[in-house]
Design a protein around this nucleic acid. Structure first.
Lengths: 234, 234
DNA sequence: TGTATTTTTTTTGTCGACAAAGAAAATGGA
DNA sequence: TCCATTTTCTTTGTCGACAAAAAAAATACA
């Protein structure tokens, strides 16, 4: 019911409405601006975006396809809950994808791939320096997506992309609990990964990808146990 | 333009239309009844199913989300082409998922999982005996989906499911080229996998999953080279 | 007061219609 | 005959409206 909806009613091209709604809603969900479990009202969105329910609906169908929202048969649609019980499975898959994509990048990357990867790394480094948590999460995902692209396997890349998106919400929780600071260790790890990829050192790429993933898993684990303790204090 | 569309106009419940269209269209695409690259007409589908364009559209959006159809901005939508150039990447991912899911099933399966797996195996075996190619493909996918479910990792399971779906089209080509017969070797391999899972032998499960996947890859490879030769004869 | 039944309200699923965007066809000029 | 321009046609994207489903509220009854 936050009614300062700064209603963005503007002229837009035919066919662009769906993408607009989809992108914005996706970002709002992943940045936890829309809290998990909160209801989604088609009519409200329609008035907010100044368009009919039809394009809104199409955007929602797409989001549902990615599992970001859940839609009960004839009843409400809501933002998907974060599946904390499924976190071990999630991180298992994430680490495997870290490994596989980095490994393939070391094998199959071409010259201009490295340029793109370095660009992403620069953006990530800047976000860390600026202590901008949201930017860190986004640019980190972009960095690894660029590595996956260099691996030349569209199936891994799209799966990895989905995992990284889903993970944005959990990572957001993680960063929030700290002061939105991040140890520069991450930046260094990225540099090592770039070096291994450039040297086409598959074994090192595999090892670094695995370590990078598992380190994040450990930090998340520490966060959860720490929160448990904090929650108990009277 | 096959106009014997046996128009299935019947009373159906509110909300069931989309799923009906989605399932049928998906099957027709994966069974190559709709050939890759062929155009899809919303109006034609609407009249065929006796419903408005709206639910048709929603089904198409979902199929597009899975990559089974491609939709040009303001122009036609068509059945996605099979990406033959991407086949190495595809099989790489498929084999990895064979390995991972079988391995996890050996670790995490519970008692009733094996019952389901054995059911699927029985169906697959029956399809092989009946020399029903379409049933073989479908039941084989179901068998491995059951194993993935026993692995208790929803992320791997959904990714694997998507791969198996996409692969149905390529496998259909493969079976078509033979006499829709299948060496009973497949059935035996499945039995070995079940035994390894039941014995919780992770190493064996991994090895068998890998061998099973790679064997299929080899057979597809043989098919393609054979077809290349056949295509050249004058 | 508590429970079963009816009524109202809210929200979704579906429909038919219309306008925009391209593509295809038709027209005109060299 | 060939190419450029205009016109027609096809197909999509969007809209407003209405009916079905489920929940919430109201009513009746013990």
């Amino acid at each position: 019911m936050t009614s300062d909806d700064s209603s963005q009613i503007t002229e837009r091209k035919r066919g662009s409405g769906v993408k607009l709604v989809y992108d914005l809603l996706r970002d709002e969900i992943l940045d936890l601006k829309l809290s998990p479990g909160s209801a989604i009202d088609e009519v409200q969105l329609a008035t907010r975006f100044g368009m009919s329910r039809t394009p809104i609906r199409e955007a929602l169908v797409r989001l549902a396809g990615e599992g970001l929202i859940e839609t009960l048969p004839n009843r409400s649609t809501m933002v998907s809950n974060i599946d904390f019980l499924g976190m071990p499975a999630y991180f298992d898959a994430l680490v495997l994808m870290y490994r596989v994509t980095t490994r393939l990048a070391a094998q199959h990357h071409q010259a201009d791939d490295l340029l793109l990867i370095r660009e992403r790394q620069a953006e990530f480094s800047a976000a860390v320096a600026a202590q901008d948590a949201l930017a860190m999460i986004a640019t980190n995902a972009d960095f690894h997506a660029a590595i996956a692209a260099a691996g030349r396997n569209a199936y891994y890349a799209s799966f990895f992309d989905r995992l990284l998106g889903e993970g944005r919400r959990m990572l957001r929780l993680y960063y929030q609990s700290y002061d939105d600071r991040l140890p520069p260790r991450y930046v260094d790890e990225h540099e090592e990964i770039i070096a291994a990829v450039e040297a086409r050192n598959v074994a090192a790429a595999d090892r670094l990808g695995k370590a990078h993933g598992e380190q994040i898993v450990e930090q998340i684990g520490r966060l959860l146990t720490r929160n448990d303790r904090l929650d108990i204090v009277l």
